[in-house]
Design a protein around this nucleic acid. Structure first.
Length: 799
RNA sequence: GGACGGUUAGCUCAGUUGGCUAGAGCAUCUCGUUUACACCGAGGAGGCCGCAGGUUCGAGUCCUGCACCGUCCACCA
């Protein structure tokens, strides 16, 4: 074994080895229990983010553990590369703008870009040591998946679960598409709160608004029913300044009397409450904002202006005519689109929805049946469902996505759906087989499906990667869904919803939720803040194993803080693993491992060490079974560093060098436990453990990779409780003597003339050899000690 | 406004069903190098366990209230 471990070279080597040897390949013919993982398909972007490295490593650790407990692991890998996020990526990468291009050209460019970027992007996942079967691979824009997604859409369409409706929808004027409730985000903005007076028969009424540009859309003024100031105005008509149309003054208890002037104008549509009032009071529709965010003819002379320009002009004109009574600068919170940060508008459009509000009870029940790690994230799921107000809007007015397999008859406007056997279908380039109104004149549905409407089908997509029917059936429901908490409201919720609608089943047995990566200051890492650390840089500097080791220091659901120091510590552990293995193996070269050993050949320290390993194994397993991998890692750390390196090696060194006192027993315990430690570490640091396994152990073990071996089994015959106690008492003596040396400034290597031990534990007298070896003591005696170590132990040390 | 999580050594965090004289790693200080490892070893110093009450023989751990930090949801006229 080389003196220094060159992680860059070795990690590349083993990465290639795993791929070439198909180490992580799913075997449909295997008789083992299947453990199936609904791997999150990352949204295709230039490169992997550190948050990805963090959360994917955590799930990979769990999966690797499962593999080593004898499960037949089904762990596919896909990328999500259609829809808005991909369009945004292409616009940025290729420096184009979607609305400047023809639909088909833009789609072509998207396809080309995806093809270019995808391999390098996936490589990042391989480099971090993911143990997916990369041959079980999918991309959410392929025709196969289009077919699958369209098929499930049609299923809902036929059940009338998917429906098209004209109505106010949340709209992003920059992306020019409808978006779903979950895609909105809060953002603080500076704004101005204007008091604007309206004329009525009974005098002036003053409303407060931050959006004077929507005056043209004003359809009512609303006051609180118990507001004395405005009682006399109720049911009166008010004239809208600048635009002159009349609106009614009505009452509604949703109005906050203390806000602004206590009177509010209702526009179609300024915000979400306007929608409620619009329906509740049966108000007329007056839409003055177009889909591109510009005002229309209803805005009269302001037509064609953007919202921002219109606001300036309208405010100026209102001031000129003294309609503005007061203005106040405020910081307000506005809803913006999470993908582009543009303030959203509410515009009535024709959109496709999936009806889900009637399923709240069932969905809550499914949440209860699912096993959550950590458990408290279930509450977030519950809260989201309880707070749902709209059906899921699944249509987007974009180009690069999965089209709706729907046409409309040019003559009667009737919807015509594609046949399932003809899928996938692009309604732009094909036509329905049947006729309508005696002709085949159709126009395509121009919408594409929301990306989530496809990505929430990952269990079905994954299942479809396997051809064997029997095996396929075993893959659903899946065992595990790993994901981060920020998309509980999207991906997790939608997957449960679809699974309910199509199969009436939970999609998985359990879900594990990972947290975020924070920078040194504890702030969330994000591209916009510019505080991101790139996994590639970390891997180059410290190696993937170190990165993984670090990510395993916190558990599921917990955020992790970036710290260079922690990475250095991780690397130190890896060096220690390397050095300890190298040393141990150098003494095992001529040793042929045995399954069992004659107990007479075991010294007390061997028995202690083997017992301690049994204990470690037990704790490790129990932590992992609860998905507490971070605790499992700590258990191994402690066993490896303290018991193995700190004590055991020191105790048996002399035996190994000089072939005395049952060297056979020391070799047995060393081989057994070192291989054991490597296995226990393997899920965390797969590269270096593989290197060490291949450097020695594979000569005797039958599996071609450590990752295909089973974890050691608990063996009662290797547990010796009395030896545990005896060596622990002896270690107490070690500590005391080391302290004595340290205080006197004596080097640890210097010999001690005589050590007198006063103890109640009579077994220690039988094990003086190990004390002599470890502490370099010439003579050991039993009698009165003059230094009190504890109630039961006194020592006399003569140097 | 509602919900969830957090608050323990200078920093990052462990602390199972109440038994703690509160631990680990990093940082710091002292001492020690040549048959694994200075990317090392040994040892020391360092804590009103967020605050205030309560239950108990006994509270870091259980209960109540509060404060601060983080996250999600709602409000956002």
């Amino acid at each position: 074994m080389e003196k220094k471990y060159d992680f860059t070279k070795r990690e590349k080597k083993w990465g290639r080895f795993w791929e070439k040897e198909n180490v992580y390949k799913f075997s449909p013919e295997s008789k083992k229990d299947i453990y199936s993982v609904d791997t999150p398909p990352p949204t295709l972007s230039g490169k992997m983010h550190i948050g990805h490295a963090f959360s994917y490593t955590q799930q990979d650790i769990v999966v690797r553990y499962k593999r080593m407990t004898g499960k037949n692991v089904f762990y596919p890998f896909g990328t999500d590369d259609n829809g808005l996020p991909t369009e945004k990526l292409v616009e940025k990468e290729k420096k184009v703008r979607i609305f400047d291009m023809e639909r088909k050209d833009f789609i072509k460019l998207c396809q080309k870009t995806v093809k270019e970027l995808r391999p390098a992007f996936i490589q990042d996942w391989k480099d971090v040591g993911m143990s997916c079967d990369f041959e079980l691979e999918y991309s959410t824009i392929t025709s196969e998946i289009q077919k699958l997604s369209q098929k499930y859409f049609l299923e809902l369409y036929k059940k009338k679960r998917a429906y098209k409706k004209e109505g106010p929808a949340v709209w992003c004027p920059v992306c020019q598409t409808a978006i779903a409730q979950a895609e909105m985000e809060d953002k603080e903005k500076e704004g101005v709160f204007y008091d604007i007076s309206f004329k009525t028969q009974k005098g002036q009424i003053t409303i407060a608004t931050t959006r004077p540009e929507l005056l043209a859309s004003c359809v009512a003024i609303i006051v609180h029913p118990e507001d004395k100031r405005y009682k006399k105005f109720v049911k009166e008509k008010a004239t809208v300044p600048l635009f002159g149309h009349e609106v009614e003054i009505i009452k509604d208890k949703e109005v906050d009397k203390s806000k602004g002037t206590g009177a509010v104008m209702c526009c179609t549509f300024g915000d979400v409450t306007d929608i409620e009032w619009f329906y509740a009071h049966n108000l007329p529709l007056r839409v003055c904002v177009n889909k591109d965010g510009k005002l229309n003819e209803l805005a009269k002379k302001y037509k064609g202006l953007s919202i921002k320009e219109a606001k300036e002009k309208i405010v100026a004109d209102l001031k000129k005519e003294s309609f503005i009574k007061k203005e106040e600068n405020i910081t307000q919170i506005t809803n913006v689109h999470e993908r582009c940060s543009a303030p959203i508008e509410i515009i009535p459009t024709n959109q496709w929805f999936i009806k889900c509000l009637d399923l709240k009870k069932e969905l809550l029940k499914m949440g209860r049946q699912l096993s959550w790690t950590p458990p408290h994230f279930k509450t977030r799921y519950d809260n989201w469902i309880k707070g749902l107000r709209w059906d899921w809007c699944i249509s987007r007015q974009r180009y690069f996505g999965i089209p709706f397999p729907i046409w409309y008859c040019k003559h009667c406007n009737k919807e015509v759906a594609a046949n399932i056997k003809d899928l996938p279908v692009d309604p732009f380039s094909s036509k329905p087989k049947k006729k309508c109104c005696g002709k085949q004149d159709f126009i395509p549905d121009k919408n594409v499906l929301d990306t989530w409407a496809t990505s929430c089908l990952t269990p079905q997509i994954a299942q479809n990667l396997v051809k064997n029917k029997k095996v396929k059936e075993k893959l659903f429901p899946m065992s595990l869904r790993p994901q981060s908490h920020d998309i509980i409201n999207f991906w997790l919720f939608y997957t449960v919803l679809r699974s309910n609608l199509h199969f009436k089943k939970l999609p998985w047995e359990e879900v594990v939720i990972s947290g975020f990566t924070l920078d040194e200051k504890g702030e969330k890492m994000s591209k916009s803040k510019g505080n991101v650390v790139e996994p590639k840089t970390v891997i180059e500097k410290y190696g993937a194993d170190a990165l993984r080791y670090w990510t395993a220091s916190v558990g599921f659901g917990e955020d992790i803080r970036w710290s260079e120091k922690e990475l250095q510590a991780a690397k130190r552990t890896l060096t220690k693993v390397w050095n300890a293995s190298k040393f141990s193996i150098s003494h095992l070269e001529n040793y042929k491992p045995k399954k069992s050993i004659d107990k007479k050949k075991l010294e007390e320290e061997d028995k202690w060490f083997l017992s301690k390993f049994q204990k470690t194994l037990k704790e490790y397993t129990s932590h992992f079974e609860k998905h507490h991998y971070q605790k499992a890692r700590r258990v191994v750390d402690s066993f490896f560093w303290n018991d193995f390196c700190g004590n055991y090696i020191e105790m048996v060194k002399k035996r190994l060098y000089n072939e005395e006192r049952n060297p056979e027993g020391a070799r047995f315990a060393t081989y057994h436990c070192l291989l054991g430690i490597m296995k226990l570490y393997a899920p965390f640091i797969p590269f270096i453990t593989e290197e060490i396994y291949q450097g020695h152990f594979n000569k005797f073990e039958k599996e071609k990779s450590i990752h295909l071996t089973d974890l050691p089994k608990i063996e009662k015959e290797l547990s010796f409780p009395s030896s545990m106690k005896n060596i622990e008492d002896i270690i107490e003596i070690f500590t005391a003597v080391r302290k004595f040396k340290s205080e006197k400034g004596i080097s640890m290597g210097k010999e001690i003339e005589k050590l007198t031990i006063q103890t109640e534990n009579k077994s220690i007298a039988k094990n003086t050899a190990v004390i002599k070896d470890t502490l370099k003591v010439k003579e050991i005696a039993f009698g009165r000690g003059d230094v009190r170590i504890s109630d039961k132990l006194f020592l006399k040390i003569e140097d």
